[in-house]
Design a protein around this nucleic acid. Structure first.
Lengths: 274, 274
DNA sequence: ACCTGAACACCGTTCAAGT
DNA sequence: ACCTGAACACCGTTCAAGT
């Protein structure tokens, strides 16, 4: 009845979902999958509007739509092709690989995060930058993981954003010798919290998973971990590691604010010390 | 010759690698894959040592080894089974799913990150925590993405670490009403930078990819982005978004130090204000 | 209790051939 | 130039059956 892994050996038959890879489930949220067979279904009716010429933008849009609906887990080139009514190979004419497509998705998601170089304080500018980034991710939360992984080293290289961050650091009085370090601090701050906040849950079966995690939570020995035990009620589903919903369903607004205030206060401090 | 996506329509035949999913390539580093067929190759010789009874720990260890060698991309249940000389289904007796296995990998990677509650300052304790976390990730860099995604909301719930972080915050004078927020700040700080630093590169062909990115970099219009242009030499391969190696090959030590100093200075500031 | 052997329903990618 | 149609080499997962 119970396997060594402590779970029932097999649950319900689980029909079409099956297969997949890497962070897939880890990063995923939910997703059905009504599988059609092989050949694409050409829909000639105007209602669907699926018969304009295929193009990279149409493909990227379809990909985003699919990721929004089904999570990263629900994403596959073949499915995108299916919803566009073409063969998978057709997609390959416009996009060299699956991951190039995902890179394009990231790029599209990240348009216009960097605020213009107005006349406020540098502190306010960075606050605005961080908030805008978060809003951009919020619009397509299931893309969050991609962004985190991609933004680091990627063709989604937005020179404008980089230039503005550097300019702002200069006008914040950052020493030229420290500017690369501080730039990295800014980017890590921008991306770090939000990536975690919107990291999606591992399970196919969120309800069950939440229940299990709550179990585990209640099983914590109050004597061994008194501080944790004391704060548990306040932390439940509101603190990293002790939550069972992602930022989509349980936003962490106040913690985000705290995070950026810490970051900015820290930057003030470090910049004034140099 | 050139497709709309601006890349050659098809490169070299690309033999066995093929297929895969999600962040796969995004998170991956490199990986061959010498494919055996279907049935596992039983090796009865002692040298390989592959004939002890199958068990969850052996499976997890094999998984880690494989991820270290081939990247997350090179990871598959079937491959793990292959190296253990058993059928894929055998693995399923010990581990309920692929992602449960990856969760176990994370858990194993994250052992003992939280330092004991010694007698130093709270500042030093957090410095130590952040450094230990980074070292743990460094040991198995290809697991970094998993950790980032998992640690947030996961069965890798380590009550001890949480308890210690909370205790430290209390003794740092953190107001009880702000403790959850500050805890989240700490976790995001711990995980954020390092996850980005070790995020792996998208390409199957890192050399080519690096070249392309350098091209793109040189193509930046100096007139349009003067600050960026000025600092480009200092940033190349050392700054997020403008690098073509991951933390494994190009560690970002000084930026990491700057990051945690900013974080700690910020925490001092915020804690003293409340 | 633990594993084999085979099957199922998917993948990403390639490639000749059509239009 | 753009897409079809089919194939190739993989996946994760299930399930009866063996031992």
């Amino acid at each position: 009845m119970a396997t060594p892994s402590g779970k029932p050996a097999r649950l319900s038959p689980k029909p079409g979902v099956s297969a997949n890879k890497i962070s897939q489930r880890l990063l995923a949220s939910t997703s059905p999958k009504r599988g059609s067979q092989n050949a694409p279904i050409k829909q000639k009716d105007k209602t669907a509007g699926q018969n304009e010429a295929l193009s990279k933008v149409r493909i990227v849009d379809a990909a985003i739509e699919q990721i929004d609906r089904n999570g990263l887990m629900g994403f596959s080139l073949r499915d995108v092709a299916r919803t566009l009514g073409v063969y998978p190979a057709a997609v390959y004419w416009h996009v060299p690989t699956r991951d190039a497509l995902l890179a394009a998705v990231v790029e599209s998601t990240m348009e216009d995060v960097a605020p213009p170089l107005g006349k406020g304080t540098w502190q306010d500018w960075f606050r605005e930058l961080f908030s805008r980034y978060r809003k951009a991710v919020k619009r397509h939360p299931n893309v969050a993981q991609l962004v985190g992984a991609q933004l680091v080293s990627n063709g989604s290289l937005s020179p404008q954003m980089i230039d503005r961050i550097l300019s702002m650091l200069v006008s914040a009085g950052c020493d030229e010798s420290k500017i690369v370090e501080m730039y990295n601090v800014v980017v890590a701050t921008m991306v770090g919290f939000v990536t975690l906040e919107y990291a999606s849950l591992p399970s196919d079966d969120p309800a069950n998973w939440a229940a299990q995690l709550q179990e585990k939570t209640h099983a914590i020995r109050a004597l061994e971990f008194p501080t944790l035990a004391r704060h548990l009620p306040a932390m439940a589903n509101k603190a990293f590691i002790v939550r069972w919903q992602s930022g989509t369903d349980a936003p962490m607004d106040s913690s985000f604010v705290a995070f950026i205030e810490v970051a900015i206060a820290g930057m003030e401090q470090v910049l004034s010390r140099q």
